[in-house]
Design a protein around this nucleic acid. Sequence first.
DNA 1: TTGTACGCGTTATCAT
DNA 2: ATGATAACGCGTACAA
Lengths: 339, 339
Amino acid sequence: MKRSPSQRPAAVRAPTLDDVARAAGLSSMTVSRALNTPQQVRPATVEKVMTAVRATGYIPNALAGGLASRRSKLIAVVVPQINNSMFVDTIQALSDELAGRGYHMLLCVSGYAAQTEAELVATLLSRRPDGVVLTGIHHSAELKKVILNAAIPVVEIWDLTPTPLDMLVGFSHEKVGMATGEYLWRKGYRRPGLLWAMDRRATQRQQGLCETLNNHGVSTIPTVTVPLPASLALGRSGLRQLLEEGEFDVIVCSSDTLAQGAIMEAESRGLRVPQDLAFIGFGDLDFAANNRPSLTTVSVDRHAIGQRAATLLADRIEGLDVEDTLVDIGFHLIERESA
Amino acid sequence: MKRSPSQRPAAVRAPTLDDVARAAGLSSMTVSRALNTPQQVRPATVEKVMTAVRATGYIPNALAGGLASRRSKLIAVVVPQINNSMFVDTIQALSDELAGRGYHMLLCVSGYAAQTEAELVATLLSRRPDGVVLTGIHHSAELKKVILNAAIPVVEIWDLTPTPLDMLVGFSHEKVGMATGEYLWRKGYRRPGLLWAMDRRATQRQQGLCETLNNHGVSTIPTVTVPLPASLALGRSGLRQLLEEGEFDVIVCSSDTLAQGAIMEAESRGLRVPQDLAFIGFGDLDFAANNRPSLTTVSVDRHAIGQRAATLLADRIEGLDVEDTLVDIGFHLIERESA
DNA sequence: TTGTACGCGTTATCAT
DNA sequence: ATGATAACGCGTACAA
């Protein structure tokens, strides 16, 4: 009754810690502690605070909290695409793990352009995230400078390098290519054709593959490249184009999606898979195991990449011991029916 | 040379507006304006500021900015799952559109549990987002209270109701079910079986479908329900289970993924599609058009949902006129080979 | 066009 | 265990 009589200022602006403190008859600092570190506050006091919180409908202001504490509980994640069958599982795992540890995920799409990525990261850093997840290991000099200058924990994912910016969870695309090449040679394939998307990591797999095949004496490897994002339609049209350029016993595809499209095209042409033409993919998507013929492909634990990345980041942020900051998650070539 | 000689305080803590101001010989307020509203500042001054920004490596602090301005340029997005072929395109569109308008996306996964959603939104609101995107229209009373109390712009997506919390972009799942039922009846199918995932929106489609078929005298509709998330394997096993329960001329699936799995199972049993058994899906995923037989399904503009939602939100936040706050994005039943 | 004073809501720090 | 005070870095409002 002492304040302005008929006004309800709490209705127009969100209740603050001070409002809760007033309602509970405590100082705002005690309320803050009751909410963040209840073990430092007498149980009865915590009780009073919780009651006041419910009464006022208080929701903490993380902007103010982050400003004062210099910890935002925010993780910035940059991916080339969201709607990519490969990355999306990693993102999901990241999100789950981060949420479990009290972090929120700021998700950004770079779109396969290094320049864009640099600008994106700069704006993301303005949010003062506690950590950053970057896809890939090829970044502009500008981005590296900004990130290192910010001295913020970083995890690069989906690739491997002995010299990451900070931490890394990935695998060697070159080795994937080499393993694929060895496998095809061993199975007796001698006239491979490539159906390939034009992203950086796919190119690395291509290099490993071609090197290996070259070493075995397979020197000419006709290749059709397709733009991103890969699709079944591109797989179909890509195979058509490839078949005009020569004869093959196996088609190596840079992704399961392209392989699936190519197989569809092959079958509609009456080609038997793998007798007339074999196919091998990359990714081990859901349909690879279920398709008929099932798809020989390379499996990567996409979920584990996200989970490990989140764990590394959270551990590092929270000052825990982080033993391996460079994690090779590996891969498996899965032999199935298509090759 | 006037300051402490050999110290570089800027290296230990991030440069602030004041640091830039000092370097440029201006007040921090002028620097702030040069960065946010350059048209209010003399071009030569802007130039000086930009030079100082580059020299100091200044990155704005959006926490402080948001606290002071009460606008965070942050949009919170809540989806049941990220790695869902349907939602992921919407998320991508949301992200693209929001980024284009200067917003960042805070992405959270609720996991199909209303209780979880309520808690998630409460923690999200602590970030003081300028807007919120919620998937679906069924929310706990708690969540509604919190959202309405926060008086924050909200867009519900992927569903339709005459009484949204605030704004809405979606379509009627019941009508999808009805349209599917009418189509099947018209095509002469009389013994349908359902292969259905157990989420809320799928259930609505089921109601529309069953009602319509009932009205046509088709009263018993055997149904096999499968857990989320849908997968090809669940489609296959679901069909096996269904075929033990009776004879059918068409299998209606709650998603294209289930339909694809079921078709795989049918074909491996030597059933001809659609002559022996027809299939209809929902979603119009990439493979629906490319598969052989191609899949009759319901197409929804997933991209448009995300884009419209982002536009509505941004317009509303920026005080622009928002004419339609309740957008029915519609759907198309696409007749192909499978049914 | 530029500058000054102050508040945004919280946490760190020190005191009690 | 609790409180008082001072940042945290920026934008609003007003003055010049």
